[in-house]
């Protein structure tokens, strides 16, 4: 045992009522809000600065994006179910739900890939105009966040068992934090979808 015992890793702090990891995750998400906030701010400034701005559905595939929205909110549910299964001490179910979450995230990326490929086929690139520029930047950055989520969740899926057996409380806390991140990724898409595709 190390001499450095850091408190409130698995049990919440008596005053703040949260664990270190949870507070840290929320701080990180706060910074993510500002990151995407800046990009939305850029979108507003670019859009209000010009007289003509295309309606998203003119250029973008709304049915595919609707499908992707449904995929992502489903994955949010499976993510939270995976955490709930841990709380009910059902490790098998936890793994199942987490695996489904990862598969849905991959499905989201595949659909996104088709969308991008279709755009490139028609020679629509980020450099085509500022609409495509902001579309590719925002969805690209969101896509990177999805990939990040897949990596994190896959790590917990394949390497989580040992920690679950030794530190179950801490592990459930980690899955909750991974879930917070994943729901945030979902939340960003919930705003991206109407802003880019429907307005």
């Amino acid at each position: 045992m190390s001499t450095a015992v850091i408190r409130y890793i698995d049990k919440p702090h008596p005053v703040t009522g949260v664990t270190n990891a949870k507070l840290g995750t929320w701080c990180f998400l706060a910074s993510e809000v500002m990151l995407f906030g800046a990009l939305f701010s850029a979108y507003v400034l670019l859009r209000t600065g010009v007289s003509e701005w295309p309606h998203g559905s003119q250029f973008l595939n709304v049915p595919l994006a609707t499908l992707n929205t449904l995929i992502l909110i489903t994955s949010s549910v499976t993510m939270v179910m995976s955490w709930a299964s841990l709380m009910l001490k059902q490790f098998g179910k936890y793994r199942l739900y987490l695996a489904i979450t990862i598969l849905l995230a991959l499905a989201f990326l595949v659909v996104k890939g088709f969308e991008y490929g279709h755009k490139f086929e028609h020679h629509h690139f980020p450099s085509t105009n500022t609409f495509y520029a902001i579309y590719f930047t925002l969805t690209g950055l969101h896509g990177l966040h999805v990939i990040g989520g897949v990596v994190v969740n896959a790590y917990f899926l394949f390497f989580g068992k040992r920690m679950w057996e030794t530190h179950p409380e801490q592990f459930a806390g980690r899955i909750e934090c991974a879930g917070l991140y994943w729901h945030f990724v979902d939340l960003v898409w919930i705003f991206l979808f109407p802003v880019l595709y429907l307005l």
């Binding site: 703040t16 009522g17 507070l23 909110i73 549910v77 939270v80 729901h183 979902d186 939340l187």
Partner: peptide, 22 residues
């Protein structure tokens, strides 16, 4: 979008029962 976002935050991210510091 705001309603949907609030639902995700309130229930999936447990903001309904979250602590003051958050």
């Amino acid at each position: 979008a705001l309603i949907k976002g609030s639902l995700v935050a309130a229930f999936f991210m447990h903001l309904l029962t979250e602590k003051q510091i958050i």
